[in-house]
Design a protein around this nucleic acid. Sequence first.
DNA 1: TAAATTTGCTAACGAACGTTAGGTTGTGTA
DNA 2: TACACAACCTAACGTTCGTTAGCAAATTTA
Lengths: 197, 197
Amino acid sequence: MFVTYSMEAVLTRKEQIEKTATALFKRKGYTATSMRDLANALGIEAASIYSHIRSKEEILQRVCFKMADEFFDALDAAESMAGPATVRLQRAIAAHVQVLTQNTEASAVFLHEWRHLSEPLHSNFLALRDKYEARFREIIREGIQRGEFSVPDEKFAVLTILSALNWIHTWYKPEGKMTPTEIAENLSEMLLNGLRN
Amino acid sequence: MFVTYSMEAVLTRKEQIEKTATALFKRKGYTATSMRDLANALGIEAASIYSHIRSKEEILQRVCFKMADEFFDALDAAESMAGPATVRLQRAIAAHVQVLTQNTEASAVFLHEWRHLSEPLHSNFLALRDKYEARFREIIREGIQRGEFSVPDEKFAVLTILSALNWIHTWYKPEGKMTPTEIAENLSEMLLNGLRN
DNA sequence: TAAATTTGCTAACGAACGTTAGGTTGTGTA
DNA sequence: TACACAACCTAACGTTCGTTAGCAAATTTA
């Protein structure tokens, strides 16, 4: 059914639609992207999209929850090895950065467009996000207990760390001078040891 | 014309509209907020709003550029005194946090909704933002030259610092346990000296 | 008291929106 | 060769959108 001789991954039509939609959602936002915009980017009519998806929100839902899965999977892998909190935090940061840089468009949707999900998806999503942040809080808490870290409030620390990381998708380009690994290392260095010489 | 016995600032009708709109823009986004939503929040009809403003975009424009002014004014005041880069960065961070916490709703609009401005406002806004970031880059550059800071890339450092700060508007509440000053101090401490004990 | 201004209303406009119904075409499978 | 199905079409639906026109009432100013 699918025959290709290029190196590119073979996408089903539905995946193509999702990918194109994700790019538009990042550039213009979910609400400001019309189905006619999406159709135009795909080179077809708006009505034709409904042969492949049920609704506009279905696209948003799939992108948001797929990315949530990716962040959790990466974090699971990062936390699979034991070690001091400092190292675990470095690994968690590196995992987060890897997912962010691997797909900046889906990341942007994941970070900013989820709020247009209707209930109960909206609540489900927020619950997942909180679970994810809790994993980071747990690392920070352990680091404080073991005397590795010195922060006034672990929730505050986690929000600051994640917000420092979550800006990457706005400027990262694969052809840039820093690789995702280098970005993660620099961020870990800044967040753990600070700017100070 | 305006007589009031309360402590609240007296707002013109236009300012009331802007304030209400700003709250909605933060909660639902500019595009997802209709003029009828705004009218409903004000207790009037949508058409009545046009006695006070020219268009929906005028509101967005005013909020975005007013906040830009506030950020620049605060940074001007913070940089009016000389000193080592470390201290100047601390002051600049404190100024930025003050503006963010003083008006979290307008800050959210400033940070996220500006992209819905049409040309040439869109370009003007981006130019202002870049000018603002350049002021921070200058501080970092000096800090590196004087040996106060040790970072691989000043642009990278500034983006990381600002993105760490710009998340505040999502969780800050005036009745919370940290004052804006304490938040600024904790953030300066984290960014300058890191998490490490 | 008269004039000007502010603030709001109802009714309606044309455009854009997400989506559905029903039909056509081409392609891989039985 | 017949059939199923994926992919896309045209046409249209009911709704919502930002905005305008024209008017009425209240309030402030002269």
